[in-house]
Design a protein around this nucleic acid. Structure first.
Lengths: 190, 190
DNA sequence: TCAATGAGTGAGTGCACACTCACATCTACG
DNA sequence: CGTAGATGTGAGTGTGCACTCACTCATTGA
């Protein structure tokens, strides 16, 4: 099983690992870290449960991997939004906020994984570290791309967190004034 | 077991239920909804596990009860802060923000239960409802006491959510710039 | 004094789940 | 071809947990 002489390809196991992460994300997103059974994840990925543990030694490591995938999606979304805003000479921070709102509509798993990892962080150091990496990279990217002042960035992140929570309790489907006020402006998180 | 003729007292079972909720809160706060075993909760309350289930038919109902206790503590804190701010002619919303920051230091369980209920809300309707009640009452109270405009209230709640998340990952113990920026101003959430 | 009701428990039960292991099959290379 | 190493799995194992049940003891009201 030596590498081909010329082209450098991912090994099959590496491909499997990536596919597994993609398949695991919606399961973790829907059920949370503790309530998501590895058997269901294995089924979603189309492999045996045993092989899940061959690819990731523990469930916590699998989940941390999923967190990293979610982080990458977030970063890519914001990088995209910033680039587009700059070519159109729009406000970068505002564009990123809109992009986040759109992402939450389109790819709810990213949001939910974020939320679940926040609470699992308290119990699994691996997950807490993944969470911190996410904030570190996100903050650096948004700060650099937008050039906004720290207070502005803090407000921006705060609105993002509110969006997450409101989405988690499906507040946008409620016809009450608090829900309209707090969840209504999910589109312009900035 | 008919009621005494004159004074209306809580039944003993009712007292037990309340004591159980108080004892269960730190366990749920530390381990989360799924990871908190009812046996440990029973021990913390000094009763048998069997009796836990006599007092609350399911674990979800027990947790929802704990959420309600946390909600009451939050409401009381804000009511207090508002009253004090008014007698001192200070800004009510700002005082409430400070009070929240202080509460997070003093009674971390309230925060953590909040956080855990947000994710458990996705799976247990009882818990989701408890969560919604919390936001409804909280929003109504803060709006009424402060008289602030909706956008201001939204910003206020958003900062509160950011505080929660930063506290959950112990960001205030990190020496990185994103952590300082996002978790540094936990004291003045307003 | 004696039923009737409620508080409280010890000892389960059944099940779901994280993780393991012995084994099978494929692929690459000499 | 043969074999070494990698991919992959069926069939467990042990454990932890939500929830139950049959039972005891205390209180109360007549």
């Amino acid at each position: 099983m030596s590498a081909p002489t010329t082209t450098r390809k991912l090994s099959t196991a590496e491909q499997r690992r990536e596919a597994l992460l993609i398949a695991a994300m919606p399961v973790f997103a829907e059920r949370g870290y503790h309530a998501a059974p590895t058997l269901e994840i294995a089924k979603a990925a189309g492999i045996s449960q045993a092989y899940v543990f061959r690819l990731f030694p523990t469930k916590a490591e699998l989940f941390a991997g999923v967190c990293d995938v979610a982080r990458e999606r977030l970063l890519a979304t914001f990088r995209d939004a910033a680039a587009r805003a700059r070519t159109e000479a729009g406000d970068v921070l505002e564009a990123m906020g809109r992009a986040y709102g759109e992402l939450l509509q389109r790819d709810r798993d990213v949001l939910l994984v974020q939320l679940h990892s926040q609470v699992a962080a308290g119990q699994e150091p691996l997950i807490r570290d993944a969470m911190r990496r996410t904030f570190r990279d996100l903050y650096a990217l948004v700060a650099r791309e937008s050039g906004a002042a720290p207070e502005q960035l803090t407000g921006w992140f705060a609105h993002g967190m509110l969006c997450n929570v409101m989405a988690a309790i499906d507040a946008d489907q409620l016809d009450e004034d608090w829900a309209r006020a707090l969840a209504g402006d999910q589109k312009d998180c900035a």
